[in-house]
């Protein structure tokens, strides 16, 4: 029995991450898959959610050498809600500036906001702890549980429930009149133009909600790992979420989840494989190669199966 424990522990660990990433991928699917909005700053919105939740729930550093002086120590639920709302607000602000314009300007603006958020995380030391990040973020029921397996299992139940809620909510939204308008806007420029200002409002709502979901994913992440730092929110995260969505199939919530599991599995296996193959001295390089591999996967998918594993058949190219 005891030799299975590490495997089991690893499996729950893997699945917790998969469900957190899947939540983020669902947010991106709302923006891109349903509305055709191109967000290159996923990592930024995730970071806002993670940092906001951490700051709301974690007390400031103690002691004379304390770096971080902000922190509220509120309940974790408050952090999750706060992180979600904060990311949604940032998304709304960026969307407000860029959504009226050509679709690729949104891509550039979101890229920019992610860069700026990264800068703030690195440099606003009093708030974010700078490069050291925020440590000792509270984990739910940590005191009551002993051992990482129990915590992992419990957190897995939490993240699966969260993922299920987000999934159900998005499915309902997609089937609602609101969701139908979104698709009409995405697929038909003339319909979008006919809606005029209202099309902008619809896009903005979709973008903000999608950003909020990403922030929620970030909050889930923060309270699982218990420690966040700027390097957790680099562009590679954006890229992973995108690959998950594209592989699974943009436009399908189930596809987003399936793609997440597939890509996260490939990512993990590739990482382990490269670590085996490449001598210890070159491990940093192995990590680079892992990213190259997933980059190639994304490109290959776009070239040969653009609708992804489960995506809807391409009716027309989204927002041509």
């Amino acid at each position: 029995m005891s030799e299975f424990l590490p495997v089991l522990s690893y499996a729950t660990f893997f699945l917790v991450f998969a469900s957190i990433f899947a939540t983020m991928a669902l947010g991106l699917n709302l923006q891109w898959g349903y509305t055709g909005l191109f967000n290159v700053g996923v990592a930024g919105f995730v970071a806002v959610g993670a940092y906001a939740s951490a700051l709301l729930t974690t007390p400031p550093d103690a002691g004379p050498g304390a770096v971080r002086v902000v922190g509220l120590g509120l309940p974790i639920v408050v952090g999750w809600i706060g992180g979600t709302v904060a990311a949604g607000l940032v998304a709304a602000a960026v969307g407000f500036a860029a959504l009226r314009l050509r679709h690729d300007y949104l891509a550039i603006a979101t890229f920019g906001i992610a860069v700026v958020i990264q800068l703030v995380a690195l440099n606003a030391q009093k708030l974010t702890g700078g490069p050291f990040g925020i440590q000792f973020i509270p984990k739910p029921f940590d005191a009551q549980l002993d051992g990482s397996l129990a915590f992992n299992a419990l957190y897995l139940a939490l993240t699966l429930a969260a993922l299920g809620c987000v999934y159900a909510a998005l499915q309902r939204l997609a089937a609602s009149p609101w969701g139908r308008v979104l698709r009409a806007i995405r697929e038909d420029e003339t319909a979008a133009e006919a809606l005029g200002k209202r099309a902008f409002a619809f896009r903005l709502q979709s973008f903000a909600i999608g950003g909020a979901i990403m922030g929620f994913g970030g909050a889930l992440y923060a309270h699982f790992v218990g420690y966040i730092a700027p390097e957790d929110f680099l562009p590679i995260l954006t890229f992973q979420i995108w690959t998950m969505l594209i592989v699974g199939g943009a436009g399908s919530n189930r596809g987003a989840i399936a793609g997440t599991v597939v890509v996260w599995a490939i990512w993990t296996i590739a990482g382990n494989g490269l670590r085996e193959l490449i001598p210890a001295a070159d491990q940093a390089r192995a990590a680079s190669l892992q990213i190259v591999l997933v980059g190639v996967l994304l490109a290959a998918m776009l070239l040969w199966r653009p609708q992804g594993l489960l995506g809807p058949r391409p009716s027309k190219s989204p927002s041509a």
């Binding site: 995108w242 680079s288 190669l289």
Partner: peptide, 24 residues
Amino acid sequence: QGSAIVLTIASFGAALALRNFLQF
């Protein structure tokens, strides 16, 4: 194949792959 925005996604992926290959 058509859509310009797919090109943008692809370029984003290519950028990461190129940068990390450079690092490698």
